[in-house]
Design a protein around this nucleic acid. Sequence first.
DNA 1: AAGACGAAAGTGGTTGA
DNA 2: TCAACAACTTTCGTCTT
Length: 311
Amino acid sequence: MSQKKANEEIKNTCPDCGSNDLIQDNQRGELICTNCGAVVEDMIIDDSPEWRAYSSEERANRSRVGSPTTLTLHDKGLSTQIGQEDRDAYGRKLSKNQKYQFYRLRKWDTRSRIHSSKDRNLTKAMRELDRLSSQLSLPRSVKETASLIYRKALNANLIRGRSIEEMIAASVYAAARQRHLPRTLDEIAAETRMSKKELGRAYRLLLFELALKIPLADPINYVSRYAAELNLSGKATADAKQMINDAKREKITTGKDPVSLAAAAIYISSILNDEQLTQAEIAEVVSVTEVTIRNRYKELVKELDIASSMY
DNA sequence: AAGACGAAAGTGGTTGA
DNA sequence: TCAACAACTTTCGTCTT
């Protein structure tokens, strides 16, 4: 029971919302509130046992049972289910009477599991989240974060009157940015049935109502992504990032679409490193116009005195 | 002929009176 | 609520390689 002891040092209520519903994420070393998504504690130590078993008896005693809980299932993956087989534990067929009993049990088991409208909503929402995040090939961390944001929105009664799809998409957008793997509004809108405009509106609602703290989209994150897509060398990618940093220092990044800045930096860097990409190629994969890339890159060249290193 | 260039006109969103 | 505005887009004719 030395494990219990270690855990007593750790908080068990969320300072943000007072919920006791905290889960420990040992991969990231964080204690997270499942109600509002706040990180209650970080840098915690994974004290789950690394058990060894020397006999089958020990193994039976020490096995850990069940799958890890996950926020992407509406009940966090904790529920039990009554099996569909009409047989008892010994594999014998059930009598007619028993069969009927089990039918009713199953029915009520399902009903109680998915009973509240919130739960029903979440069930649908998590399915949609699954679909969307795999379409966008988003990693698990983003998915979990999106799920947290959505739960928070649900608790704040922001979903009623709006479509689940809409709010899930907005949550995904927010989560991707929070995790520094931004997807553009366009990319997400393309995978859903709504416009960039509607998505943006839903996202702003989330931002405002939930007071989410989301870092401004950093062009550097887009540089990594798009440079990889354009097969730019590591050196050229690093140069492009450096360029963005210089641009930030020169105050010329505010108000500009971070995507177009990334595009311009990639363009310049590709030329400087003898890996010349055409404006059209870049425009294609980052989905801004050539004209915009031109404008941005002219500006960068001028403000950062890049011309001198070109000749 | 492909790519780069930039002018002109239009769009959607933000800001400030 | 309206007008001004900045960023971005679309389109297109022209220059450069």
